[in-house]
Design a binder for these strands. Sequence first.
DNA 1: TTTGTTAGTTTAATAGACAAACTAAGTTTG
DNA 2: CAAACTTAGTTTGTCTATTAAACTAACAAA
Lengths: 394, 394
Amino acid sequence: MEARTFVMKKPTGDLALIKKMNTAIVLDAIVKKAPLSRANISELTGLNKATVSSLVQDLIDANLVLEIGMGQSSGGRKPVMLIFNRTAGYAVGIDLGVNYIRGVLTDLEGGVIFEAEVALHRHALEHVLPELYRLIESLMAQSPESPYGVVGIGIGVPGIVDESGTILFAPNLKWKQVELEHLVSDRYDLPVFIDNEANAGAQGEQKYGAGRGIAHQIYVSVGIGIGTGIILNKELYKGASGFSGELGHLSIDLAGKPCSCGNLGCWELYASEHALLEMAAPLGYGSLRELIQAADQGDEAAQELFRRIGADLGVGLANVVNVFNPEVVIIGNRMSLAQRWIEDSVRDTVTKRTLSYHRKELRILFAELGEQSAVRGAAYYAIHQFFHRVKGGA
Amino acid sequence: MEARTFVMKKPTGDLALIKKMNTAIVLDAIVKKAPLSRANISELTGLNKATVSSLVQDLIDANLVLEIGMGQSSGGRKPVMLIFNRTAGYAVGIDLGVNYIRGVLTDLEGGVIFEAEVALHRHALEHVLPELYRLIESLMAQSPESPYGVVGIGIGVPGIVDESGTILFAPNLKWKQVELEHLVSDRYDLPVFIDNEANAGAQGEQKYGAGRGIAHQIYVSVGIGIGTGIILNKELYKGASGFSGELGHLSIDLAGKPCSCGNLGCWELYASEHALLEMAAPLGYGSLRELIQAADQGDEAAQELFRRIGADLGVGLANVVNVFNPEVVIIGNRMSLAQRWIEDSVRDTVTKRTLSYHRKELRILFAELGEQSAVRGAAYYAIHQFFHRVKGGA
DNA sequence: TTTGTTAGTTTAATAGACAAACTAAGTTTG
DNA sequence: CAAACTTAGTTTGTCTATTAAACTAACAAA
């Protein structure tokens, strides 16, 4: 979780804790419902006016809140309106893909200030790292002067990551045991957060996209394989070993095709981009883009292929829905580009195959942030940790 | 959550909260590691000696903690040892099955004081309710005089339950829309908690059985059908509608047998007691008990049947493991009686079909509480809520 | 101008945690 | 056996964050 070690005090309830809690409550109110006056905050949160005044002053001193002048009077003294100072610092988010590296610089609200992308032609670590560093440095160079500067770097990667930010295995990059967090944080002396692409995407959609305000959200990243980010009670769920959600290897056919993972009939053998292209090859199409174009131009075979992929996606999604009973399922990554050709068959299949109790609350959506789900989510990791740091008082 | 409405104050951080937290910390320490002295608690929790003394006094005044006399000196004044007063109150736990009602009376540590069971021959509500009431009353009659008396009643039922404690649907009882919580709590004027049998069983194993101290535990109740109780971060996970974990309707065969739920190839069609007995019928066996006996006496066909059921159980479990990456999976309910005949094939299948990363942390266990998982879990609901109530200060 | 209203600060009270001093009651040592 | 040391638990005074209430500031309407 933490990047470097901030010494953990004993977690007993003392006065510092309650101040921390209340500060968080106040800041939260401002972030979510700005502009607000102190009086508004008091009413909204139930905290006493005096308490709010004191906490707000601390936040102003910490450069996290700004007074933007007088608001409308409703028959008495004019209120002083407060907003969150989103430019008190900046965050870097990186999406390290298989054939690209994408990066954004965001403000503390996660809004994109600047973005950049480079193509990746080789996967060797010695080749990728310099590219990554160059991208990070170009992003940081764009960050305006600010009280906190760049507060951290979040990176989404296509592989399995452990708690220490080490990439255990990234099949499509052919990487094993890459201590990426150490490498990057040593270089820039900043907090660095590594997570897999699907988790980062899930966070992105949860905070800034289709999943805003939703407690139970499953993000299914359908690209070359299938990955998932599981958000339960508004928090990323990671299993015992820190990497759950290998839903790509959910078996949907107990006697189906053998998978490299050892199981039979894994979902991603049926419903990923890779599976689609395998079936498209005999028709003479070599890429997702070509296939979509063909479908758009009326090619029945291509359209049928999408329907089939949609159905198989739906089979797995039905399982996911029956297991998690989520409020939304978000389909993201490259396959979301084919939304118009797969959406109907996905929905039909899910409707047929889920319990009616679960269907009631369910919405199936496509990623709102498109290709930016993962970068924005990655940046959020850095922002999130920054808030914990400043509220702690370091 | 709450049974009756205790008016919720604004959840801001005030002094009462921190006292509540620290009281909980102290009580927790005593419950888990008794006997302890005040000095021990101070060291253990990091709370100041004075604070501990004061909080302990409150707990003694509330009859929740007892002084049991002097402990061993280690070179200075003898410590006064403290224990949790487990008999300050009692809880009733009920497992409402399809052909039985089982009940226990427990102390506040969940230890069984008294147990009883009645057979159910008819399922009509008019017939079951009086039986249920008679059982509850016989249990309550056994509770000794105590400061708090019976603190609540927990009931596990074979069906889908909503947040208000209404049984929406219990297929095997043919019940629909039974407001059980209301009925029972009106009758006894006590807090009543209804949940489905698998969730109750999961809680039972989590607190008193094979899942003690484990954060991520999946309890699979294999009976007539398959139900599951999912515990993540030590808490029962319920989905958006309050009833997730219909893992029985996880499809393991995308083109398999049609299920009454609308899906194809549902797990419980392959790996439940019902499925087993269907396959056993041609061999001339009519019950699980007979089949186990046959296997014990060397009947190869029966043994083969168990191996097959074990394998199909394993297929579904592998999916569960890949999805949740839990630390333990606990197989409970009736099928756990056949442990010795299915264990090997279950393990083999799971090993073959799960990702090695997940397997590392994984243990597959059978219910430690046997047939009592659900009753004990049900009682725990009442105990748990009681603690929240007294710590609140009512 | 007066009256009433709303915003925000100041003041004094309160409650809980804590450190330090203190009392209580034991053990070890010369 | 007395003196010295140890440990348990309580008492005392301090500190801090919240709060209610009083107060100041600034405006609108009559």
